[in-house]
């Protein structure tokens, strides 16, 4: 299954979850938030939310700014 994570194409096994997508980038679970196709997926739902082909996954964290 091909999805886009933070702008890059990533191949994940079918039935992959949001949690698995996050772990391609980081092992951190705090200070991180995820949106799939423009909707926030709360941390408690990461392991139960399955991705679909061509999903757009954004994984964000806080950086210096403002």
């Amino acid at each position: 299954m091909k999805v886009t994570i933070n702008g890059g194409a990533v191949e994940l096994p079918g039935e992959a979850t949001v949690g698995e997508a996050v772990r391609t980038l980081t092992a951190m679970t705090s200070g991180v938030a995820v949106a799939v196709n423009g909707e926030v997926v709360s941390r408690s739902a990461w392991e139960s939310t399955r991705l679909s082909e061509s999903d757009l996954v954004e994984v964000l964290t806080a950086v210096q700014g403002g």
Binding site: N6, G7, L25, T26, V32, A33, E58, V59, L60, T61, A62, V63, Q64, G65, G66
Partner: peptide, 8 residues
């Protein structure tokens, strides 16, 4: 103090 949100 402010922070911005960006791609990890």
């Amino acid at each position: 103090t402010t922070v911005a949100m960006r791609r990890l």
